[in-house]
Computed example of a mutant assay.
Amino acid sequence: MVQPAKIIESDTGAAFGCIVDNLNMLGACLSFDTGTVAALPDKFDLTFDNCHTLWSCRVIWRDNNVERVGITWLKAA
């Protein structure tokens, strides 16, 4: 299942839209518009419900060629 989400940078509060797929208990794969992966910090919060719930995440792999990252969950923020 694919669904939209938003990344919130913990330090700056900057937000990036993304598409989440391969969502499971261990993490997910996120897809972005061009140029976002390079600017993405290693740790950030992810929300599926417009910031009502935040999930702390850590990037475990990056693919700059197709603008995708793999994440793992740290804990509910």
Results as ranks from 00 to 15, higher is better:
M1H: 12
V2K: 12
V2Y: 09
V2P: 06
V2G: 10
Q3W: 00
Q3A: 03
Q3T: 05
A5W: 04
A5R: 08
K6Q: 13
I7L: 11
I7Q: 09
I8K: 10
E9R: 14
E9S: 10
T12Y: 07
G13E: 15
G13F: 11
A14K: 14
A14N: 14
A14R: 07
F16N: 14
G17H: 10
G17E: 15
C18T: 09
I19H: 10
I19T: 13
I19L: 15
I19D: 06
V20P: 12
D21T: 01
N22F: 04
L23I: 03
L23C: 01
N24M: 14
N24L: 05
M25W: 05
M25G: 09
M25D: 11
L26Y: 09
L26C: 10
L26R: 11
G27D: 03
G27V: 03
G27H: 07
G27A: 12
C29A: 12
L30I: 09
L30K: 07
F32K: 04
F32Q: 06
D33R: 10
T34A: 08
G35R: 02
G35C: 06
G35E: 01
G35M: 04
T36D: 04
T36G: 03
V37R: 09
A39R: 13
A39L: 13
A39E: 14
L40N: 04
L40Y: 07
L40C: 05
P41W: 04
P41Q: 00
P41G: 11
D42E: 12
K43S: 06
K43N: 10
K43E: 13
F44S: 06
F44N: 04
D45S: 09
D45P: 11
L46V: 13
L46A: 10
T47D: 00
N50M: 04
N50F: 05
C51V: 07
C51E: 14
H52F: 00
H52C: 01
C57H: 06
C57D: 00
R58T: 03
V59Q: 01
V59A: 05
R62I: 02
N64K: 12
N65K: 07
N65H: 14
N65A: 15
E67P: 02
E67N: 03
E67M: 01
R68G: 00
G70V: 02
I71L: 06
T72Y: 13
T72C: 10
T72A: 11
T72R: 08
W73F: 10
L74K: 14
L74A: 08
K75W: 07
A76D: 08
A77E: 15
